[in-house]
Every structure is written in C-alpha cells, then in structure tokens.
Design a protein around this nucleic acid. Structure first.
Lengths: 199, 199
DNA sequence: TAGTTAAGATTGATTGATCAATCATTTGTG
DNA sequence: CACAAATGATTGATCAATCAATCTTAACTA
C-alpha cells in the first residue's frame, strides 16, 4: 500500500519535469497561449498525469513561477551590507546580477508576464514583489553604508535601489533579442553610475 | 451608392473606438486572454462589425499597438542634439519621458507583451524595435555632443543610450502598481546620473 | 517462491465551455 | 430600388477538467 522510496523519487522527478516544461512553454507562449496538452508532451507525461500533480492549470503556473524563485534567494543573501570596501562589493554585485539577468532570459520572461498581468495572478505577483522588496532592501543598506563611509555621493538610498532593480528588469526587456552576454558585461560600469561613486 | 461624408466619418470613428477598446483589453488581459466579443462590446459595436474593419484578430492587435506609436514620434523629434546647453536639454528630455512613461501604463503594458512575445508578433515587434532604435539614436547624438562640449564624462555613448532606454522600460515594470506620478518625478536626478554629468 | 489482493498512479477518451471566423439576413442610405 | 454596412446565429476548432478503465507494485498468503 505505501509507496516505495523509488516510486516516490520517480514521482518527484516527474513533478519536476512537468514544472520545467511548464516554465519553458509559459515563458514562450504565455498562460493562455500554452495548452496543458503541450506541457504534458514536453514533459513526457500523459495529459491526465499533469492533474495528479497539480490541481489545475493555475496552480501549475503559480508553482512554475515561484518555485524557481527559491534558487535566487542567495542573490539577496550574498550581498553583504557590512562589507569594508563598499565600491568593490557593489561592483561584484552588479557584475553577478548582470550575468544572471543576461542568462535567465526564459525565467525573466515569465516574471515579466506576471508583472504585466498582475491582476490575473495576484498571489504569484505578491511573491515576486516580496522577493523584489527583499533585494531592494539589501541594496539600500549597502548604499547607506557607502554614503556613511563617504565613498558614494549622498542621494536617497531608497530611490537608488529602486532605479537599480528597475534597470536590471529593463535591460532584460531591451536586450530581449540580444543573447550575447558580452554586450551585457560592457554595461556594468554604466550601471555603477547609478550608485554615485566618488572617483 | 457612394458613401456620404457623414457615413465615412462615422465609420472612421467606429474604427477608432474598436482600436481603443482593443488596446485597453489587450493591455489588461493579453492577446489570447481577450475575446473579440469583449472588444466589440467595449467598443459599442456588434461582433461581426469588428471583422468589417479588421481582417482578423491578429491584424487588429497589430494596429492597436502600432497606430498609437505614431503619437510618440514627436518624443524623438523633440530631442535637439544641437542644443547649446546639453545638460538642460537632457534634463528636459528625462523629465518629459518620465512623465509620459508614468502615465502610459496601459500602452506600455501592451508594448511589454509584444517584447516578451516577439516570436509570435514579429512584424509588430519590428516596428517597436525600429521606434526604439530611432529614440536611442537621438539620445546618443545628444550624449556625443555633451561629451564634446565637456559637460559629460567620456563613456561609450551607445551604451549610455541603451542603459537610458532600458531604465525607462524597467521603471514601468517595477513601478507597475505605482500610479503615483510624484514617485516617478523623484527619480529624475537618479536617471540623470546615467549620462555622467560633470557637477 | 508463486500467487493474490488492493491501493494508488497512469492514461486518454469524453464532456462542456469558449473562441475566431463566416455568412445569410436585416438595416440604413443615396 | 440598389448598394453597402451591420448584425448575430452558426460552425468547426480548441481547450481545461473529469473520470472510468488500466497498469504497477507493495503487502499478504499458503
């Protein structure tokens, strides 16, 4: 009657496959634009099986967006607001973020869909917004520290953080057909300007 | 047999009403998420009439996105790369753009949908991309002029223009539930930093 | 060990709803 | 009357979700 360890692992793998296929297709074709049938095919699973793993299409969408988000939590934690050399810490952060935003085209497309459709996916939007707020908070702390240490010009740190995170999302949209990561790298010093470094 | 002047005007008005309703609904619910029936209702027109004005739903979408774009052409033309006082010209431009981007939530949502779905709407995407390129070009010329005059620090002008237009789009996404225009206004000096003004 | 049972996962045909597009009919106008 | 615009019922396609039937396997039995 109970499932064996192997069966449980198989089911977990299946669930992951469905999520991956869903994320890819939702990112490419949008929520209404991707039939569950297609997700099932891409995941190598029968149509019916999708509904044994997820109550309905909406739940699947929510999970496909929010579960990968956990992977990105370390992006927030890696920022050290207590860093001695604030400018170096900022440059490391920007460089890392740029590289990730450049490479996560698919997932960020998905995020964009939720943002532009936030009335339709309020719960999903809320989780994204909370993540964004945590990131913004950390950046803000680092900016405050830099201003106190005198290595950054005085500006409203909240606004600086807002402009920074906005710029990351905006670059993802503007360079949407620009997979060339080197183009992105070249923008790092320009992004740094936002923080008002004293030269 | 020929239509009277009044009839022609009525038809043109009807066409405009359909386009306005379509833009609003497409922006809110996306392409697949808005039935033609709903557009017809919102425009105060019968279902069948939509198809006497537009061949099909795709054509209607394309027109709803690209026709309002003509209104924005003056945003590009208003930038004067020959301006004496480059810093003042830049600040005027940024202020104007911020105000417009803050107020055009609906239309820019629509634009974002095309960008994230550019494989599905290649022709529409192309027109948006061309507009973006014209804007970027003008900004670049102004930056070059500012650097030659010595009022801006030397940076790659192309990159500066890219970062600027990216930031505008990104702010629209980040502040998606922030209709408060005053929040946007406060970001003007931060955006100016991108251009590297000498103080 | 082989055979039996039952719990639970898997499947895809079916159902009912929704949609874009068509088209025969009606309405309005010169 | 003649022509063109306007209408909405109809058509055929597509979709999410359900569900009865099938398969898989752990647990039990002799």
């Amino acid at each position: 009657m109970p499932l064996s360890e192997e069966q449980i692992q198989n089911m977990q793998r299946k669930r992951r496959q469905i999520l991956i296929a869903a994320a890819t297709l939702f990112a490419e074709y949008g929520y209404e634009g991707t039939p569950v049938k297609k997700i099932a095919e891409a995941a190598g699973v029968s149509f019916g099986s999708v509904f044994t793993y997820f109550d309905n299409k909406e739940t699947l969408f929510h999970s496909a967006v929010t579960e990968p988000l956990k992977e990105f939590e370390k992006l927030v934690e890696e920022i050290d607001p207590e860093a001695e050399d604030v400018l170096a810490e900022l440059e490391t952060m920007v460089s890392k973020h740029i590289r990730i935003y450049a490479s996560m085209n698919e997932f960020l497309n998905l995020v964009t869909r939720v943002l532009t459709h936030y009335r339709k996916f309020p719960d999903t939007f809320k989780e994204l917004d909370e993540f964004h707020e945590r990131l913004r908070e950390r950046v803000m702390e680092l900016v405050v520290s830099g201003q106190n240490k005198g290595v950054l010009y005085e500006q409203d740190p909240g606004n600086v953080a807002t402009v920074y995170t906005s710029l990351l999302m905006g670059m993802r949209l503007s360079l949407i057909d620009e997979p060339e990561s080197s183009m992105w790298e070249r923008l790092v010093p320009h992004v740094m300007q936002i923080f008002g470094p004293k030269h």
